[in-house]
Write a protein that binds this DNA or RNA. Structure first.
Length: 425
RNA sequence: GGAGAGGUGGCUGAGUGGUCGAAAGCGCUCGACUUGAAAUCGAGUGUACCGAAAGGUACCGUGGGUUCGAAUCCCACCCUCUCCGCCA
């Protein structure tokens, strides 16, 4: 959620930043805010009078005035009058507040000053590239879904029978590879200082609202209708809410977490795209990194978070590049994002395998997650950052292609061999 | 799923209609005493919104209601705990 106070004090600036990522008119918010504050002022004055009457009546009765006396009756009458007025104002104010809140929840985060201006993914900026020396020499690489099926480790057809299209069953050594990747990534991040969590995979609406998936992107998640529970689209959601509605002591920061979870996405609106393989499934595994940090450190923390994600690709010797997303391609909650794209030889393209975002105080505001600095009055919102480290299915796809041998076998990356107990698939 | 108990500030816990944002204790912060510490004593110690400020308003699980006045009474819901059932 954007800062209403900042918007009020500097509307042109906020509107200008917001315009960089699309059109969103903030005027209605300012109007509602104005109305709301006027109503609040009126209401609290009435409320004060009402409280005063209440106290007076109590005092008089206790000091012996007859409750039936005309003096008390007059006060009661006035109390009723005030109450009648309040009865009109209160619903109005509530309604306006609700409207304001509803709109605010649909406003995306402001792009950071360092985010390149642009309209679409075309305008994203390549920051660096790594691992050219590991680009496979084999010119006849078979797409990962084909090798996978040939090796009997991936089955899409039977998965469609069990569930739907866009699901996969991973079998035998493939399943071992998937597990090895999860374990390998977690071990790395734990060594880097992230504390592992295994959160609930079913999540309530409030949590999805805090991280930014709701209300705007309800179509992207699977819902269990009778329970107000949703299948987690990413571990970012439950972890954002881990300390929701809390006030942490400064000493608690920074908090680093990593988590393995399956992720469930409806992929509404992408029906024609990536219909084959492991790239776009309704269910996939992911290891996520998450940081709760002091605002002063969030930029530096964002850099190291991105490095920690890159470290996984480097250890696996998978060629990748780092893009900085432009203002037009930024996710809803992010103020600044680096995407990591891994080389997929079969399509001759780099494909997103990790997205590392700084959301600053946007999610913390929605989730009311604050910290208190000793000696300073008041509280501040923490900054939240998240990054995939990495999407496991896509990593598997990258390995099945980049490590593919001319004879169709797959070499296992060195660092995974201890986890697999074998060197070839 | 059935039966019962309960949800109060950082914690423990009092409060069943009146001046209660809430006793007391613990904890924490500052100060005094002390060579230092402990102990002791004194002061302070929730959050948010409105307001230039003085100050005001809201919050005792959540939402409604009764009343001049609700932490306290009524209704609905949520959550936690115990027992039974079921189950990995």
């Amino acid at each position: 959620m954007i800062d209403l106070k900042q918007l009020r004090e500097n509307p042109e600036h906020v509107q200008a930043r917001l315009n960089l990522r699309g059109n969103f008119d903030l005027k209605p918010i300012l109007d509602l805010d104005q109305q709301q504050r006027e109503l609040e002022m009126k209401r609290s004055l009435l409320q004060a009078r009402s409280n005063e009457i209440g106290k007076l009546v109590g005092q008089k009765i206790q000091s012996g005035t007859n409750p039936q006396s005309s003096e008390i009756q007059a006060l009661r009458d006035e109390g009723n009058q005030v109450k009648a007025q309040l009865g009109e104002l209160e619903p109005q104010e509530k309604e306006i507040k609700a409207q304001l809140e509803a709109i605010l929840l649909t406003v995306p985060n402001l792009p950071s000053e360092s985010t390149p201006v642009g309209k679409s993914e075309e305008d994203n900026v390549e920051i660096r590239r790594w691992g050219d020396e590991y680009l496979p020499g084999n010119p006849n690489i078979v797409p990962h879904w084909e090798v996978g099926e040939k090796l009997g480790i991936l089955n899409f057809e039977r998965s469609a029978k069990i569930a739907q299209s866009r699901f996969v069953t991973i079998i035998g050594a493939g399943a071992a590879l998937e597990r090895a990747l999860i374990q390998f990534m977690l071990d790395r991040h734990i060594a880097e200082g992230y504390t592992e969590v295994i959160p609930p995979f079913l999540i309530n609406s409030q949590s999805l609202t805090a991280s930014g998936q709701l209300p705007k992107f309800a179509d992207e998640s699977f819902k269990c209708d009778r329970d107000d529970l949703w299948l987690t689209p990413t571990a970012e959601v439950p972890i954002t809410s881990l300390y929701r509605d809390e006030i942490l002591p400064t000493e608690a920061l920074p908090i680093y977490h990593c988590a393995y979870t399956p992720c469930f996405r409806r992929e509404a609106g992408s029906y024609g795209r990536d219909t084959r393989g492991l790239i776009r499934l309704h269910q996939f595994n992911k290891v996520e990194m998450f940081k709760f940090v002091h605002p002063d450190t969030s930029e530096a923390e964002h850099q190291t978070l991105t490095q920690d994600a890159e470290g996984v690709l480097q250890a696996l010797k998978l060629p990748y590049r780092v893009l900085q997303l432009c203002t037009g391609d930024l996710g809803f909650s992010a103020t600044k994002t680096y995407d990591l794209e891994v080389w997929l030889p079969s399509s001759g393209k780099y494909r997103e395998i990790s997205s590392c975002s700084n959301c600053m105080d946007f999610q913390a505001r929605r989730g009311n997650l604050r910290f208190k600095e000793a000696g300073k009055k008041g509280t501040q919102f923490v900054h939240t950052l998240n990054g995939s480290g990495l999407a496991v299915g896509r990593t598997m796809a990258a390995i099945l292609e980049n490590y593919q041998q001319p004879d169709g076998t797959i070499q296992i990356p060195d660092v995974l061999q201890p986890y697999m107990g074998r060197s070839v698939l």
